[in-house]
């Protein structure tokens, strides 16, 4: 564990907590893509199946459980409890266009052809693009509430910090995982446009609004 990895994990945790607080406090999931949240739940569940086969550390186990439980709780809030506030019409991204190619890619490019490893690889590829429905929703409505912007910033920062962690681990431990590094770089690149808007608008107290 190094400072980049810890900061990345905490940023990820912060993102999830921000999202749950936003939905709970405003009693609304307006502006949040249920499609992205479905993809994140699929990511965590398919990646953390190793909870039952491999013990890494208490920290690792607790974080995995938190990510799975919070993603399912978010889905419950969006599709059951605050269903009426969910923005169906704008959240029209077709997730099968992400799910199927990621699964096929995982079957083709992986470290080992075992069910758990294929699912882990699938989750890594899927996580890289899981935010696309959310970014698509923001682009369709042309704006995002400030707490939604903070959520996206924390979520994007997490993988960017992991990139630093992987650079550190390569030099410090000789450890590297090309699949995770490649997907993590794609994931971070997808947020760049949003990072720019966040820094130039939201941090200056303005609402995140896209030019018409």
């Amino acid at each position: 564990m190094n400072i980049f990895r810890l900061a990345g994990d905490l940023s990820h945790l912060l993102a999830i907590i921000l999202l749950l607080i936003k939905i709970w406090k405003t009693r609304s999931c307006a502006g949040i893509s249920g499609k992205s949240q479905i993809l994140f739940a699929v990511v965590y569940i398919s990646r953390y199946l190793d909870l039952v086969t491999t013990f890494v550390s208490v920290y690792n186990t607790v974080m995995k459980l938190v990510f799975i439980v919070s993603s399912v709780a978010t889905l419950y809030m969006m599709y059951v409890k605050f269903k009426a506030t969910y923005d169906h019409n704008h959240d029209s991204f077709r997730i099968e266009f992400l799910l199927v190619p990621c699964f096929v890619l995982a079957l083709l490019i992986h470290a080992a052809f075992t069910p758990l490893e294929i699912l882990w690889t699938f989750s890594i590829y899927l996580e890289a693009v899981a935010i696309l429905p959310q970014l698509f929703l923001v682009s369709k409505t042309g704006e995002a509430e400030s707490i939604t912007s903070h959520y996206l910033f924390a979520l994007g920062s997490y993988r960017a910090l992991y990139l630093l962690n992987w650079i550190y681990r390569y030099y410090a431990e000789g450890h590297y995982d090309l699949i995770a590094i490649f997907a993590g770089a794609i994931q971070t690149i997808l947020y760049c446009d949003f990072f720019y808007l966040y820094i130039t608008k939201v941090l200056k107290g303005k609402k995140l609004q896209l030019p018409a």
Partner: peptide, 10 residues
């Protein structure tokens, strides 16, 4: 991947 330890990151 390390056969013994699996994936140690989140």
């Amino acid at each position: 991947i390390d056969e013994e330890e699996g994936h140690d990151e989140l």
